[in-house]
Amino acid sequence: MQAELIADTRCATGESPVWVANEQALYWTDIPAGRQWRWQAANGALSHRDAPEALACMAPTEDGTAWVAGMASGVFLLQPQDDGRLSDKRLATAPHARNGMRFNDGRCDRQGRFWAGTMLMDMAAAASVGVLYRYTTDAGLLAQLDGFITPNGLAFSPDGQTMYLSDSHPSVQAIWAFDYDTETGTPHNRRLFVDMKPLAGRPDGAAVDADGCYWICGNDAGLVHRFTPEGRLDRSLAVPVKKPAMCAFGGTNLDTLFVTSIRPDGVDLSDQPLAGGVFALRPGTQGLPEPTFRV
Rank of each mutant, 00 (worst) to 15 (best):
H225E: 14
G201P: 07
D204G: 00
L199S: 07
P198F: 14
I216V: 11
N219I: 04
L233T: 06
C217L: 06
N219D: 07
D211I: 03
F193M: 10
M196C: 10
D204S: 05
A210L: 08
G222A: 11
G201M: 02
W215F: 11
Y214L: 00
P229F: 13
V224P: 01
D211L: 12
C213K: 00
P198K: 01
E230L: 07
G201D: 01
W215I: 02
C213N: 04
I216F: 00
G201K: 07
D234M: 15
W215K: 07
S236A: 10
C213I: 01
T228H: 01
L192E: 09
G205C: 05
R190V: 04
L233K: 03
G231L: 12
I216G: 00
A206C: 06
F227G: 00
M196H: 07
C217H: 08
G222P: 07
V194E: 08
R191G: 07
R202K: 12
M196Q: 03
A200M: 09
D209Y: 14
S236H: 05
I216Y: 01
Y214W: 11
L237Q: 09
A210W: 08
G218N: 09
P198W: 12
L199N: 10
A221V: 11
A207E: 11
A221S: 14
A210F: 14
P198G: 13
M196F: 02
C217Y: 13
T228G: 05
G218R: 04
G231V: 14
Y214N: 00
N189D: 15
D211S: 12
G212A: 00
D204Y: 11
F227W: 05
V194W: 13
R232Q: 04
L233H: 09
E230I: 05
C217P: 05
R202H: 08
